[in-house]
């Protein structure tokens, strides 16, 4: 698309030797095909602050973009102009908005638009506007056949990109594409068991498909135990475990024999703060439901709070002291 406007200037130091080759950007004001348009300059007033030191090319592109918006021109050349404006500032949501207006008006090939949008996403994977544009175009097309692959490509560079996860969830829900999702999450967790976004996606996928039925809860508890046994000091699966257990009607410790499982780890010398915190939660649940056991359980619980504060999680010592006081207040004599 750009070839027509880019002139290749070949500079030669002598007749037969090329020393360099460069693309020359032709300003819109020097382009014959734009000669009929009067550029519209920006009015920043006499005392503007936080000015941006625009380049000449930027000012030129936006002078023409303003002129096009003012006249309401919707043409192929205006579409190309928005491409230049976006390339210079992909965060300008108005340019994207105007581009969509032109696409609609011209009945442009939206598959081509997806290709352009993909390029922009690759260049600006953490920009809100590119993902929003993608969503609108895919919604117009009612075709999400390329979308899961696109987000997977983004995750291969940054598996925790929040924009891409939000977008993927929208695609999965809107187009009901959950079939392979749990397998995909499995793969991500195998690559990195600390990927909290993947754990969240696991929870989301189950919520949207089978739901947390008693069988699924058993399966998930088993799954998460294996992940914790692989790396104990990892907040993400512990948090997921708590999330799964919340879906049961019964007591926390009875699910999947969690109480024994934790005790064994503890007796084996494991002192990860996440394990200790989970034990406190189990004991809190026990004190809630079995008042007779309160004195002995509370004593053990407070000991763990002290160990966390003084040894295993000193950075949060004030928090553990607070939790200790809180538990004493609630369950003490």
């Amino acid at each position: 698309m750009r070839e027509a406007q880019i002139q290749l200037r070949v500079m030669c130091s002598n007749d037969d030797e090329y020393v360099s080759e460069e693309d020359v950007w032709v300003l819109y004001k020097d382009r014959e095909e734009w000669a009929d348009v009067t550029p519209l300059t920006q009015d920043d007033g006499p005392n503007a602050v936080v000015k941006i030191a625009y380049t000449d090319a930027f000012t030129d592109v936006y002078d023409y973009f303003r002129a096009v918006v003012a006249s309401g021109e919707m043409s192929e050349r205006a579409l190309e102009l928005t491409e230049d404006a976006i390339n210079m500032n992909a965060a300008n949501y108005t340019v994207w908005q105007y581009r969509r207006k032109i696409l609609k008006h011209l009945g442009s090939d939206l598959k081509k638009e997806l290709a352009f949008c993909r390029e922009m996403i690759e260049m600006n994977p953490k920009n809100y506007q590119v993902w929003h544009h993608r969503r609108v175009i895919v919604d117009w097309l009612k075709d999400a056949s390329k979308e899961l692959r696109l987000t997977e490509m983004i995750f291969s560079q940054d598996a925790k990109n929040y924009h891409a996860w939000e977008y993927r969830q929208w695609v999965l829900r809107t187009f009901k594409l959950f079939d392979g999702e749990l397998d995909y999450v499995d793969r991500l967790l195998e690559e990195d068991v600390r990927n909290n976004s993947a754990w969240n996606q696991r929870h989301f996928t189950i919520t949207q498909t089978t739901g947390f039925t008693p069988d699924v809860i058993q399966r998930e508890v088993h799954y998460v135990k294996k992940a914790i046994e692989k790396v104990v000091n990892n907040e993400s699966p512990w948090s997921y475990l708590r999330g799964v257990v919340q879906h049961c009607d019964g007591r926390m410790g009875s699910v999947g024999d969690l109480e024994n499982w934790c005790r064994q780890m503890y007796e084996g010398g494991q002192r990860s703060p996440y394990l200790l915190t989970f034990i406190i939660d189990l004991m809190e649940d026990k004190m809630e439901h079995e008042p007779d056991l309160r004195p002995s359980v509370l004593k053990h619980c407070l000991q763990i709070c002290i160990c966390l504060a003084t040894e295993h999680d000193q950075i949060r010592q004030e928090y553990w002291r607070y939790i200790g006081r809180n538990l004493s207040h609630r369950f003490g004599a």
Partner: peptide
């Protein structure tokens, strides 16, 4: 300095200059 002129590298803030002003 932010209050006065920002370098071209910050051009993605072109539509949110008042937020940069607020930060400053």
């Amino acid at each position: 300095r932010c209050l006065q002129v920002l370098p071209y590298s910050t051009v993605t803030f072109d539509t949110s200059r008042v937020t940069v002003l607020y930060f400053a």
